[in-house]
Nucleic acid binder design. Structure first.
Lengths: 195, 195
DNA sequence: GTCTATAGTAAGATAGAC
DNA sequence: GTCTATCTTACTATAGAC
């Protein structure tokens, strides 16, 4: 798999990002060396520094890219309707979007502690924007009387935690289809908020 | 804080475990060096090896100790009553037990990937035993007609994920008391299972 | 753009003095 | 039981040839 001398920036760049993402998710940022990433990509360690100034930037760029993509995809998704309809759409969106991005969501929540303080602030702000969408839905639902929640802010965190858990066990081709998973989780979320 | 020569096995042992637990939870197993643990304990790095054969054993012993304690505490907790009563007790137990052990639960779920395969098998089996308790409650509730769940196995994972999320944000002395947190989560769990 | 080679640092773990 | 000192390995990052 190792390559000889040559120019491959259009291939190597994405491969470095994909490989780093996969390894960071599987083994953790601190446990993955630049040499290991390079070996799996098929280059020498020094070549990585043509694409990232350092290892921390590699992690940060992966996380920021994921959050930007997530927020953009969310902005494109359906947002109208009653709070119940919006909550169902949020549940469906969250599960579907992350279904084939288990690495991204895992890193986004687990590698926060390995970011420098400045980088952490940026990612945390983006994460807050995403979770505010769910908070808004829950608050609207309580206001309209559709939902019965003791504490919408805590409910936001509870629902996000529950939905994120999907990626820890769901595997395509397993016992359940994605549509079935969505139905099971929506059933629990809907009932949990009292809709 | 550094100590001079002397015998302190009764003090140093627990301090090493406490310090390693805290640092592993805060920064991750791979990111914490033996030198760093030793520095916070107040000994030199070499002294740690009087208490653990290696770093991996230190992590494994912490995780196994936590799971053993958790299962023992669970065995002592109330187990009788209807499925609804048992589910409420499980919810209360899980939140209360982990409230002042956020480091332990964080490590138990996040550092699994840093265990050797043999050690992973042991911890995973203990974790399965704990989650089986919840699965049993949910299955009994479905059988008795108290709960309406599409898939009790998925519900088990969803509820565990939701409850584990508590430790990521709950801080003693914050806006909510532990009793309030228990009430909020029980309200959502109860409704989610259709009780 | 990638290579080889290496500088400089830090890691896990051990040996032997006290 | 702890210390100092060290072995060996591995790490991030850089320099210069091609």
């Amino acid at each position: 798999m190792a390559r000889t001398t040559g120019s491959h920036s259009d291939i190597t760049g994405p491969r470095i990002r994909e490989t780093a993402l996969r390894l960071f998710a599987a083994e953790g940022y601190a446990a993955v060396s630049m040499r290991k990433i390079a070996a799996e990509v098929g280059v020498q360690a020094g070549a990585l520094y043509n694409y990232t100034p350092d290892k921390q930037s590699l992690l940060f760029d992966l996380m920021r890219g994921h959050m930007d993509d997530l927020l953009a995809a969310r902005a494109d998704a359906g947002q109208g309707g009653t709070p119940t309809q919006r909550l169902q759409e949020f549940t469906r969106f969250h599960i579907t979007y992350h279904e084939d991005r288990p690495h991204e969501i895992f890193i986004a929540y687990m590698e926060l502690r390995n970011l420098t303080p400045e980088n952490f602030e940026v990612i945390e702000a983006l994460r807050g924007r995403y979770e505010d969408e769910l908070s808004g839905i829950l608050q609207d639902g309580v206001a309209s009387g559709e939902f019965t929640l003791i504490d919408p802010r805590i409910a936001t965190r509870a629902i996000i935690s529950m939905l994120n858990g999907v990626t820890t066990w769901y595997r395509r081709g397993g016992r359940l289809s994605l549509a079935e998973v969505e139905a099971i989780y929506w059933d629990m979320v809907r009932k949990a908020v009292g809709a």
